[in-house]
Design a binder for these strands. Structure first.
Lengths: 229, 229
DNA sequence: CGGGATCCTTGACGATACTG
DNA sequence: CAGTATCGTCAAGGATCCCG
């Protein structure tokens, strides 16, 4: 048998695109499901396997493991003792991720639907975008309550201090300084800069209570969604 | 039955990512296999179904039909009597395509392998990047011969004139003014600007023969790969 | 010839359970 | 914490045929 065709045989998968075009070659590496979102997590500073999972609550562990190995093979990340980190080639993917975000952020492009709202992903993103410099000296506990969510996805406790930030899904018993209640959609809209802090407070169902001074200072603590336009 | 989980039931596909992140929302629309390459074809000026296919020789027709409908539903293209065309949202995808190309064009990122070389895709891209202004008044026929390819993929005839360009896979009998012979890899390297015209001519196995004056003028006719860095 | 629809096969993806 | 093992489903891929 002499194989003349360069196309794969029947039933054989065509993994690549068979194109010299740089877009096609890029997509052979980056185009698989989840891959660019994993890169986004690494760009945001995650390094550990489960740290990445917290940013991508719905990724199957097997898929994440496979993708990390593919990215390593492509020279985009390296895996060491202290977790995964981007290589120079990986850091250079920021413009790709940013241009996708910029496109989707325009009105009427890829509107936010209910199934995009996830309290775990949201609070995890908030947790890593806190301005430690702006936080008061003593550790503060902020309780988030998503009033349109059931038990497990409803309440989160954010422990913020000068040195570190911790996100908990259980009440540790530490005194809560500020409560923030509202629907996921409204708080998400504020986070991605589609609503200002004022507009958020004016939403029906949104309420912030607790220490007056802290509430006044709070808006400066949050850096907001990193890829907002 | 009360569905508490927002995750799909067993066996049901999880089409989305369940993320508010703009990157995830963009990829829900654009992240499927072939989609961004179809957008690239449209950005390059293709409008017809089979015109897109010529730029993507390996896409299954069923997949192309499905993708076009998805893109239409997402407001990225519109389908009319004179074929498909990009909407404003679609044209705004240029930075996404360009950033992917720029990333892959850097050395050591996504190297060109043998299975990326496709004479059909290459000649088709050459054909649409001809500077009609630079072409001589009379129609000229250029014959490409890829010396490392068998029968069907070996010879192409490019008929170029002030008004139009035609790419043929058969000899129409029209007098050939210039022959261009070489291996696919070398001619591709020239096309994507990894080799200059001079360097191409110096490659072993590359030969250009025919009308001296035309050969001298030729380099200015070709605009080169549109997404070269 | 442009623009598909249809049939069939395979493997990528997702869910769940289990392990060093 | 960081995966592997197993299994089920569905979409991608290839070939063929159809229609105006």
């Amino acid at each position: 048998m002499i194989e003349v065709m360069s196309s794969p045989a029947y039933g054989e998968p065509m993994t690549g695109y068979g194109q010299f075009c740089a877009v096609a070659r890029a997509l052979e590496v980056l185009g698989e499901r989840w891959t660019l979102l994993i890169v986004r997590e690494l760009l945001m500073g995650s390094t550990g396997f489960n740290e990445i999972r917290r940013g991508l609550p719905r990724i199957p562990t097997a898929t994440l493991a496979t993708r990390l190995r593919t990215l390593e093979g492509a020279g985009i990340i390296t895996g060491g003792d202290d977790g995964y980190s981007l290589t120079a080639a990986g850091r250079d993917l920021f413009p790709v991720v940013a241009s996708l975000a910029a496109w989707a952020s325009q009105p009427g492009r890829a509107e936010i639907r209910d199934d995009h709202l996830d309290t775990a992903a949201l609070t995890w993103d908030i947790q890593r975008r806190i301005d430690l410099e702006a936080i008061p000296a003593r550790t503060v506990v902020i309780e988030f309550e998503f009033t349109d969510r059931p038990g497990g996805d409803r309440r989160y406790w954010l422990h913020v201090g000068r040195r570190r930030v911790d996100l908990c899904r259980t009440d540790t018993g530490d005194e809560v300084s500020v409560w923030m209640c509202g629907r996921v959609a409204d708080i998400t809209d504020w986070w991605i800069a589609r609503k200002t802090w004022r507009e958020l407070l004016d939403q029906p169902g949104v309420e912030i209570s607790g220490d007056r001074d802290l509430i006044h200072a709070m808006p400066t603590w949050f850096l907001g969604y990193a890829l907002a336009s």
